[in-house]
Design a protein around this nucleic acid. Sequence first.
DNA 1: TGCACTATTAACAATCTTGTTAAACAATAA
DNA 2: TTATTGTTTAACAAGATTGTTAATAGTGCA
Lengths: 207, 207
Amino acid sequence: MKEEINKEKAILQAAEEEFITKGFAATKTVEIAKKAGVTHAMLHYYFRTKEKLFNCVYEEKIELLKQSVQVFFTETSLPFAERIKLGIESHFDFLRANPRLPMFVINEIMSNPERLSLVEKTIGEIAINILATLQGQIDKAVKEGEIVPVKASDLIIDIVSLNIFVFTIFPLAKFALIPQYDSEEDFFNSRKRENVRMIMCRLKNND
Amino acid sequence: MKEEINKEKAILQAAEEEFITKGFAATKTVEIAKKAGVTHAMLHYYFRTKEKLFNCVYEEKIELLKQSVQVFFTETSLPFAERIKLGIESHFDFLRANPRLPMFVINEIMSNPERLSLVEKTIGEIAINILATLQGQIDKAVKEGEIVPVKASDLIIDIVSLNIFVFTIFPLAKFALIPQYDSEEDFFNSRKRENVRMIMCRLKNND
DNA sequence: TGCACTATTAACAATCTTGTTAAACAATAA
DNA sequence: TTATTGTTTAACAAGATTGTTAATAGTGCA
């Protein structure tokens, strides 16, 4: 039988949608089952408990989140500022494809702090090394006169702040912001340019 | 009797804490009652339903959120950039005092889109006017050669992105970031300076 | 004091939600 | 075919959660 795989996947996908938009507590397993087109007993048959089903979704998303930041640390032959520019743009595009991801993760950690440990394990162990590597690259670029000094953690926070906010705030600010732009598409493109500009400005000027 | 006011307030305060950290769905009225030190029947006596109690908290918070942005539009005799600098700092301080507020509001809108209408009513009606006013001030400052051109909505998004992110991401990134700074206090002060620097840089340079 | 009103409690009811189970069903291989 | 294995369903059970109610206690005031 092949149906079993499809049903399991259907449940997973429905669960992902529900969990990401509503969060763990607000999501009802019956709703997931309904959305997936199966009886809710099937959900328990495949995933045993709501908690286990949630973890399948959650762990996958943590992995995604991790990848979204690693883009800044792929070594190339480009000048530092150029590499950061590409990093910002690809991070922005990633968020556009997964706009609810950051909020989802932060949220579940808030209401259930034990979940933080998975993030620490997955991201924490590489974060320290990665920041040190980036700091090394920054220092080198500074010495060569390409950019002004900046703390690696500040640079990352600057970039991620500007990028993430565009997507998390969007549902709230949509009605006020969209009239300022030609279209949603125009808004996102314009913001991508503005974010790159902000960071380049920071890297080049000594105010 | 005076106790009634105290009990009602105790319930409201407990509700605020619970709703803001856990969200509507994950919050149990019994827990609120326990935290407030009253029987859960009292909660229903004063607020009728969980929904009504939630709205008391929610509406108050929306009002706060509105005030947090208005700080940018209080007219003074200071030069434009100076005024914006003060606005950023006071917005930052406000968020430090209410770190969970933005996430809370965005979250509840996500899981229950009808709530957006209250935000639209409260903030939407003033947002358009306010953006127009700001744009006027920007254009004037540009003409006088104080700053470079910028779209009002972009400037606001830049500021709010940088400020909000520091507090919403903090629980997630704490373990990786704090070792980079002397203390939590040092981290926040350093970020406040960095955020001001970013915006001043944007306003002064033509990259 | 006694009346009217509000506050408070404990017990209860209704519903929702998660999870289980036993039996029916399908596919497959011996 | 029959035994075995895995899938599916419907019905149920336990517990949590919100909300009600009827009886009780307290308060202010005529």
